[in-house]
Amino acid sequence: MSAAVTARGGRTGRRLHPLPVRIMHWINAVAMLIMITSGWGIYDDDVIIRGFHFAKFLRLGDWAAWSLNWHFAGMWLLAINGLIYLGYGVVTGRLRERLLPIRVSELLHTVRETLHFRLEHADITTYNAVQKLLYIIVILAGISQVVTGLAIWKPVQFSGLVSLLGGFQSARVLHFIGMAVIFGFLVLHVVLALLVPRTIWAMLAGGPVLARPGSRAKAPGP
């Protein structure tokens, strides 16, 4: 794969997904799954939506203590990996390059196209406006989870933060909503990736070589 792409690219250039991004992506995938499923185990001890609990087979941890232990182990993975990812994205300019700018007209265009099942995906090296928006939302939701999670974990040490979030129970609800947003993204993300399997391979092997590093010019389609 690598050789083929290099040959097509004509020279060794920057990949769509550089190795650090791929590693961090998959660490994040594991961390998110740990956090979400162990969170469901914790949730079930005192449900937020009355009448709704997560089935036992969906929970990580056979009872609350172990769901909590998974959650408080997974948080390090998620937070440290997330911080490095954001740091990397800011320093290399990747976040700005890939996620900005989002134009409203572009957004409406993509939504219209999507509704007509005319989704453009021949070129996987640039994100359309909806993709950009979704990635920004999920990054913000991830950051929000760390903040609301901190408030729930240490409501006395961070009592100011808790009152900012509207109290302890409100912080719990926000933490739950954050999970729902991330889970919703995850479902969509996985479905779309399965529809365009090249994107999965790209996240494993690096994907096509970008035409010119730093430029937003389109790379040749595979």
């Binding site: 005192d46 449900v47 009355r50 009448g51 709704f52």
Partner: peptide, 12 residues
């Protein structure tokens, strides 16, 4: 007060 069913899902 909310009246619940004494089960895990706390049905209202």
């Amino acid at each position: 007060r909310t009246v619940l069913q004494p089960v895990e899902s706390q049905n209202v």
